[in-house]
């Protein structure tokens, strides 16, 4: 088992190198650089910048060097000094900007993942065991609605409902009076009051698809001979289902961490813009539009790494759950 974990971690290294390179390459793809967009916006407002001045700044920031050299400067900075570069747009080091935002993203994503699990597990089991019952059809209908409704519509609707009928302040993660206030129980309660909207919005489609997957898998497993063996032992029905078919049908649930996590993180972007959440999404979007390359690159890199870690965790959990994976 230890060897397996070690192997997986070692194998992550080349993947990470690949991700970092691709992240950097992608943000270099659009023509021009940060200065081009600065000049464009300055000329829009009637100002002009002297070409010598442009060249001087470009050399100062190292923007005139070949891509590969820039990449090495950036990546060695991260590895050796934890220095993610400098955000042109904000005029501050990237690392100062990024951690708060990543933390909020992670919090929202984790809360959404928990929501997805807690809601879809019982419903999935119910739907599989009472297949074609009225309850199953109702959940199926809601599941498909959840899959079909775009996130931003759902976000707007919930904001309206929250504001109009529940009288709470919506948007952001805190009410205005708590922003910047020191941590307290009241502040945490306020967070929870705000968090439910993004969690529901972001989690709905994931919940719907997980219910479908669990229902299909458990249905398959329910007709396996070992279930009849368990019944023939005289076990009560709920124990039969919990101990036998569910154990195997849970596999996609655990591997879901791997694919739900990136989906949640990217799903956050649109929702976060609508709901005005202080997560990574809106910042990443602005950084990309402004060609603020180090900021955008660092975000993409960190999200890639988060996904990799999610995959690793899900694979380890899977190995713990299913001996057939552990032994091969």
């Amino acid at each position: 088992m230890f060897g397996y974990v070690l192997k997986r971690i070692v194998l992550m290294i080349p993947t990470m190198i690949g991700i970092s390179f691709i992240a950097f390459f992608i943000i270099q793809l659009p023509p021009g650089d940060y200065l081009t967009s600065v000049i464009a916006s300055m000329s829009d407002s009637g100002q002009d910048m002297h070409p010598d001045e442009v060249r001087r700044i470009r050399a100062l920031y190292g923007l005139d060097e070949p891509m590969i050299v820039q990449y090495f400067k950036w990546i060695t900075g991260i590895l050796l000094r934890g220095d993610f570069g400098y955000s042109f747009e904000w005029g501050r080091p990237v690392s100062e900007l990024i951690w708060d935002r990543m933390g909020a993203t992670l919090a929202v994503s984790m809360a959404s993942l928990l929501f997805v699990w807690i809601v879809s597990l019982p419903i999935g089991v119910y739907s599989a065991v009472r297949r074609h019952s009225i309850g199953d059809h109702v959940f199926t209908l809601f599941g498909f609605l959840g899959l079909a409704i775009p996130n931003f519509i759902l976000a707007l609707t919930l904001m309206y409902v929250g504001y109009k009928y529940m009288g709470q302040s919506v948007g952001g993660l805190y009410s205005p009076e708590f922003v910047g206030a020191p941590a307290s129980l009241a502040k945490f309660w306020d967070l929870l009051k705000h968090l439910w909207i993004p969690v529901v919005v972001i989690g709905t489609s994931g919940t719907a698809s997980l219910i479908r997957i669990l229902r299909a898998n458990l249905t398959d497993e329910l007709s396996k001979p070992y279930v009849i063996t368990a019944r023939a032992k005289g076990l009560p029905e709920h124990q039969v289902i919990m101990r036998y078919p569910l154990r195997i049908a849970l596999n996609p649930f655990v591997s879901a961490i791997g694919w739900v996590l990136p989906q949640l993180i990217s799903g956050v972007t649109i929702t976060a813009i609508v709901l005005n959440l202080p997560t990574a999404g809106p910042l990443l979007l602005r950084a990309l539009v402004a060609q603020d390359m180090y900021l955008a690159g660092s975000f993409i890199l960190l999200m890639g790494i988060l996904t990799l870690i999610g995959m690793l965790i899900s694979d380890l959990l899977l190995a713990a759950l299913d001996p057939r994976i552990r032994f091969t």
């Binding site: 023939a232 101990r243 154990r247 759950l321």
Partner: peptide, 18 residues
């Protein structure tokens, strides 16, 4: 299981693999 025991055909699929 207590008073009537049952043995099935396919021992591979009649026992849980996990």
């Amino acid at each position: 299981g207590k008073r009537i025991g049952l043995i099935f055909q396919e021992p591979m699929s009649s026992l849980s693999p996990v």
